[in-house]
Simulated assay, not measured.
Amino acid sequence: MRETFIHPTALVEPGAELGQGVSVGPFCHIQAGAVIGDNSELMSHVVVTDAARIGAGAKIYPHAILGCDPQNGKHKGGPTTLNVGINCQIREGVTMHRGSDNSRGYTSIGDNCQFLAYSHVAHDCDVGNNVTFANNVMVGGHTVIGDYAILGGGAAVHQFVRVGHHAFVGGMAALAHDLIPYGSAIGVHAYLGGLNIIGMKRSGMKRSDIHDVRHAVHMLFDRTKPIRERAKDVLEKMPHSPIVADLIAFVQTGNKRAFCTPPLGATIGGAWDDDEDE
C-alpha cells in the first residue's frame, strides 16, 4: 500500500480522517470530520466538507465539492452526511450535497459509480451501485437512482422521482415521472422510448428474461387500465418470473408520482419498443 501524501499547499484540518495511501493534491481543502478511505486520490482544488464520508479507492478530479449544505430551505443546519461508496470516479466540478435535517438526513452514493464533469447530486438522494452520470446531469432532492442506471449528458431528473435499475435516461432529457427498471427514457420532456436492451445484455441478463420484461412492459402500458391495475394482471399471467416480479414491485411500491410512459398513440410492438434480434 502506498504512503499517504499531502501536498504542501493543501489544507487538511485537524480531525479529518485520511486512510492509508490517500493522496491529497495542491490546494485541496479537507475539513475536520471528513473521512476519506484508503488509496483515494484528490487531484487538486477539491473541497471535502465535514459531512462527507468517502469510500476507499475514490479518484476525485479538480474543483469537485463534496458535502456542502443542501439547497433546501427547510434545512436548519443540523448534522447530516454525504456517504460515497468505494471505487467511485468523481470528475471535474462535480457537486454532491449532504442530506437535510428535516428529511432522511443523508445523501448516499453506491460503489463503482462514475460522475462525469459538472454533474450534480442534490440532498437526500439515494444513488445505487455502478451508476453513470454523464456530463452536466442534474438530479433533484430525494431522487432514487437504481443500480446500473445511466443518465446521458445534460439530463435532468425532478425531485422525488425514481429511476429504476438498469434504466437509461437520454441526453438532454427532462424526466418528471418515475422510470421503470430497464426503461429507456428519451426526449426533451422524456417519455418511455422502449427498453434499455443494450444495458440488459451487458449486465448478463438471459435472453429469456429480456423477453419476459419486454412482454410485461407491453402489458403494463397497453392503456386499457391504469398502470397499477395492469400490474396485478401482469403478475397473474407471469407468476413464475422473478425478474417480472421485481419490475412489478417497483410499480406497486412507489410514491404517488406518475410513471414515465410511451408517447400517446404508440401501439404495442410499435416504434417505441426497442425491438432487435436477440
Score class of each variant (00 low, 15 high):
272 W>C: 00
162 R>Q: 13
253 T>N: 15
216 A>W: 01
61 Y>Q: 11
24 V>K: 06
246 D>E: 15
87 N>F: 12
102 N>P: 04
171 G>M: 07
40 S>V: 10
161 V>Y: 06
127 V>G: 02
165 H>A: 13
90 I>R: 02
67 G>K: 01
213 V>F: 10
20 Q>H: 15
171 G>D: 09
157 V>T: 07
24 V>R: 05
80 T>M: 03
23 S>L: 10
69 D>M: 13
178 D>I: 06
276 E>F: 02
38 D>H: 14
176 A>S: 14
174 A>I: 08
231 A>Q: 09
160 F>I: 07
242 P>D: 02
180 I>S: 03
68 C>L: 14
177 H>F: 12
198 I>W: 08
233 D>C: 06
188 V>H: 14
225 K>F: 11
125 C>F: 06
206 K>V: 06
24 V>Y: 07
171 G>H: 09
265 G>Y: 01
98 R>S: 00
18 L>P: 01
9 T>I: 09
101 D>G: 11
220 L>M: 08
92 E>F: 01
192 L>F: 10
77 G>E: 03
275 D>Q: 12
272 W>M: 01
255 N>G: 04
66 L>Y: 03
25 G>K: 12
114 Q>F: 15
48 V>L: 08
267 T>I: 02
141 G>P: 04
162 R>V: 05
121 V>Q: 06
91 R>K: 13
132 T>A: 08
58 A>W: 05
27 F>Y: 15
11 L>Y: 13
58 A>Y: 07
33 G>H: 10
222 D>R: 08
119 S>V: 02
107 T>P: 05
172 M>D: 02
59 K>R: 14
15 G>W: 04
273 D>E: 15
229 E>H: 13
152 G>R: 05
214 R>Q: 14
40 S>K: 11
143 T>V: 15
23 S>G: 05
242 P>C: 06
18 L>A: 03
20 Q>Y: 12
206 K>R: 15
190 A>T: 09
85 G>L: 03
155 A>E: 10
162 R>Y: 08
61 Y>D: 06
18 L>R: 02
126 D>W: 12
147 D>P: 09
241 S>F: 00
217 V>C: 13
104 R>Q: 15
261 T>M: 12
50 D>P: 00
